[in-house]
Design a binder for these strands. Structure first.
Lengths: 206, 206, 206, 206
DNA sequence: TATGAATGAGCATTCATTCAT
DNA sequence: TATGAATGAATGCTCATTCAT
């Protein structure tokens, strides 16, 4: 009875351990520079063991991405659920996105800044239509923008395009702060994020 | 007479061929995934030949970056030299940046989206102070923003921070359009770029 | 039961096979001229397999040297343990050294005639003090010389210097007979060894 | 004319320059670890140029050996030509040999301690009979030993074997002092050489 | 479930050497 | 006489992955 359950739990735990190690190493050294052996060494298992949990190196990458989107979605869901002026809500959502990236640079880098050569082995049609694995997260943005537009006059009325443009903006902020963290003499990070987000949102309004 | 010249020309041509192959491959598969062999195969020379023109793989990367910044600077210089309202000039400069990235995706990807582990063999102090090899290009942005602020009232007065925030914005636009070109169901690219840039600039003004 | 043991035995056997191949090749062509591939080819395994048993090429060399000293020490220990006049014992020890070299030319060549650029990864302080890995063997010589000097009058009283000079002498004999075995028209080997050893020992006495 | 002569002189000079560079590098890093390119770099000529003066890398090695023997022979000739007691003369000759090795470690190492895989392209029958390229030098030793034996009673009467044994002894001294110069905690070098030579010569006498 | 052993393919780089000039 | 360009072969070593156990 309990034996089976324990086994299942242990298996899941190891799976998570592998993912954690992979995520950290991918983010730190880049997907290509990380070998299966190094991941295995870090968790103190044999390389072969990884293959019992993941088909290949690429699947590790895909899993990490999916996981990232789930985490992000959860964060965004909270903002959506909270009260407030639509404009303010949008601003807070964007800020949450950036903060998420900066506080999970490993996830962010791996998910949004790693070239994915080989597509996941299984991609549902549904996923393709709904903006891939990140669909749910993007949907929140669409909703937030839609509500802003519904409330007052805006310069743009194309919810989709506006949302995409906003995503681009905050992705630029997040990704540059992550990659060039040390290479570039940035001004105060908080200030930069504020300027970018405030500007983008203000630019959206009439 | 002409013999020497022809040799020089041929040598330069081969050098360019190597750079072109490397740039394309780096952009497509990522720096780490490209081997000297693959570059050599593409140009139909032996791997050894590459080493007659470049010290090592890292030098290839550095050369490509330098080249990119020079190309970009030239484009931006034209905008700077042209006449017009400071706000308009800024907008045009940002657009030139994005267009440059989209029409030189290999250059852009290799230069701005490749992690540079190993610094160039020679880095002048001047370069370090002036934001690396891209200093000149960034200087144009600083100038443009400075002029806008000098002309009329803006929400921000910090030229440096504002410039950096603007760079982040347009980098987000450029990089996402390049990487996820096919993976994501984008709205009309032109529209997206316009929204992002117009928004950012408008957000900058009071 | 026996399965594990068999595996262990097989692993040790392969390790020895690799060492044997390396030793032979190192001795024949010199350390630098022997590649991991060539060693692998000789034992009909892939080059990678060698790395499952040895960290790198240098470790192969070190292992061979250690092994050599152990073999040599064992031979010398027997002489030391035997009975006899100190002078005779010394002579017999020197002869054992030369014979060891001639009957293990690969060991000897690799250990005493190969330049060791890269020190072993781990060198104990003890080893450094005691003349490296060969400390035990050299200690036997020191002891033998010491006993000769303690017994009767000798021309020299410096045990250390005398021992070193004796080592030099027998190394000359051994190494030349090994390297130039075919290139030089030697007189009878036994005679040569006798002359050299007898002379050196006689020269030591008053 | 003078032109031809100058050319000849220049050619010879460059040849010597190449040999000097090769000798030094061979001795320092070992024959195998020295590349033609490195030799060329040191003399600031192109690698190709070396091939105008020497057939291949192996010929460089052979030339250096021949040269070494000539130098050594010259030194020994002086001793032979000098006056003195035969025993003393022998001792002085042996000392000259060791000193030669220690003050020309590059020559010595390359000539006596480098495995010669490929025999010289041209080896005369005469050379083979006369102990190879080093025949002249060895002849001096034979003569010196012969004279000692002719003068007084010795333990051995086999000039050839005794000479060879003496050579072995001094080679041991020379080679160990060169190779393990730093690896081994030698006593005073002069003392060691004296002990070895004095012992060997004394051992030769009745 | 987990692993140790094994490998073919690949890596960046250097080699001695040739050839056209 | 001298060289710059070029290369096939080789270097030590690491890779992702498989397979028998």
């Amino acid at each position: 009875m309990g034996v089976t359950e324990r086994k299942v739990r242990e298996k899941a735990a190891l799976r998570q351990e592998i993912l954690a190690a992979a995520r950290e190493l991918f983010a730190k050294h880049g997907y290509e520079s990380v070998s299966m052996r190094k991941i295995a060494e870090r968790i103190e298992y044999s390389p072969t063991t990884i293959y019992l949990h993941f088909r290949d190196k690429g699947e590790l990458l895909n899993e990490i991405c999916t996981e990232t989107f789930q985490l992000l979605s959860k964060k965004l869901a909270k903002v959506v659920a909270s009260e407030g002026d639509p404009v303010d809500l949008l601003r807070r959502g964007l800020r949450v996105y950036v903060d998420f990236g900066l506080s999970h640079p490993n996830h962010y880098r791996t998910t949004f800044m790693t070239p994915h050569q080989h597509p996941p082995h299984t991609v549902s049609l549904d996923q393709k239509i709904n903006f891939g694995t990140g669909g749910q997260a993007f949907q929140y943005l669409l909703d937030a923008v839609g509500r802003v537009m519904a409330t007052g006059p805006t310069r743009q009325t194309d919810v989709m395009a506006t949302s995409q443009a906003l995503w681009m903006t905050i992705h630029g902020v997040t990704s540059l702060l992550i990659t060039k963290e040390l290479e570039f003499p940035w001004s105060d990070k908080n200030l930069l994020i504020d300027i970018a987000i405030a500007g983008a949102v203000k630019g959206l309004l009439r």
